[in-house]
């Protein structure tokens, strides 16, 4: 059987909220190392990879690997029933048909029990190479969300260009064009707003704003986001889960988006 307790149900709620609009059905693979989900959107343009290590759970027991086929919008509906400071326990029998979800308030005076029907999902799995990227930009996740939203006003494709001086987001469409440049800063008093750039060579790639918009739904998870790019490969937009700022969390939520290329 599988049984795991997370002290903050809100963390799981934010994770599922962040992916449910991009991916409808997904397999959560549970093993002794933790919980993982990998899924593509319906157009196979982007990929979500969620890793929750056992470290972030108060209690974690997994006797045999289990695959939990989950309808994410339905899971999100149940998670919305949790209170702000509730803990959540997930339970599933080997080959069970349901996932039990139990919320408990801090003082344990309120216990809510739900069951979510599991599904058989035939999903293709991709091997993500563990590669070094040419450019890694760390910035405020709220700022990234705002830029993507502002770019969407003007068009559907955004160019992201990075040099040592800064990172430039550009868009053009029927009504005109626009760009926003963020310079590298190391403002000590506003650590969360700092923009840090590590790069080998300048890089510029084009991406569909629709998908970047989906990714920024993860902003409530972490005040910082890491954007990694290399020429002609998918961009990675990564958020720590259950960690603080730039420090490594016990989990991560990474989004991969294939670039648009000139024909």
């Amino acid at each position: 059987m599988f049984e795991a307790t997370l002290q903050k149900a809100s963390t799981l709620k934010k994770v599922i909220e962040a992916i449910k609009d991009l991916v409808t059905d997904g397999n959560i693979e549970v093993s002794e190392t933790g919980m993982n989900l990998q899924a593509m959107d319906s157009s196979h343009v982007s990929l979500v990879s969620l890793v929750l290590h056992t470290d972030m759970f108060e209690h974690f027991r997994c006797d045999r690997n289990v695959t939990l086929g989950i309808n994410l919008p339905n899971f999100a509906k149940i998670l919305k029933c949790s209170g702000n400071d509730d803990s959540v326990t997930l339970k599933a029998q080997d080959d069970g048909e349901n996932l039990a979800i139990v919320f408990e308030s801090e003082g344990q005076e309120r216990v809510s029990e739900f069951e979510l029907k599991l599904m058989d999902i035939d999903a293709e799995s991709l091997g993500i190479p563990d590669q070094d990227y040419n450019t890694n930009v760390k910035m405020s996740s709220a700022e990234f969300q705002r830029i993507v939203r502002d770019m969407t006003v003007l068009g559907d494709t955004c160019s992201i260009g990075c040099t040592k001086e800064g990172v430039k987001f550009s868009v053009s469409g029927d009504l005109g064009q626009g760009n926003i440049t963020l310079r590298q800063t190391n403002s000590v008093d506003k650590e969360e707003e700092a923009v840090t750039i590590e790069m080998d060579e300048p890089v510029e790639l084009n991406f569909a704003l629709r998908y970047l918009g989906f990714f920024t739904k993860a902003s409530p998870l972490c005040p910082r986001v890491t954007i990694s790019m290399s020429p002609d490969v998918p961009i990675v937009v990564a958020y720590n889960v259950g960690g603080e700022k730039d420090t490594e969390g016990a989990g991560s939520l990474s989004f991969y988006l294939a670039p648009k290329i000139d024909e």
Binding site: H44, V45, L47, E124, S125, G127, Y256, A258, E263
Partner: peptide, 14 residues
């Protein structure tokens, strides 16, 4: 014009 590439063309199927 720009063409949207698929994510599966960058990563190998497992």
């Amino acid at each position: 014009t720009r063409k949207q590439t698929k994510i599966s063309s960058f990563f190998d199927k497992e």
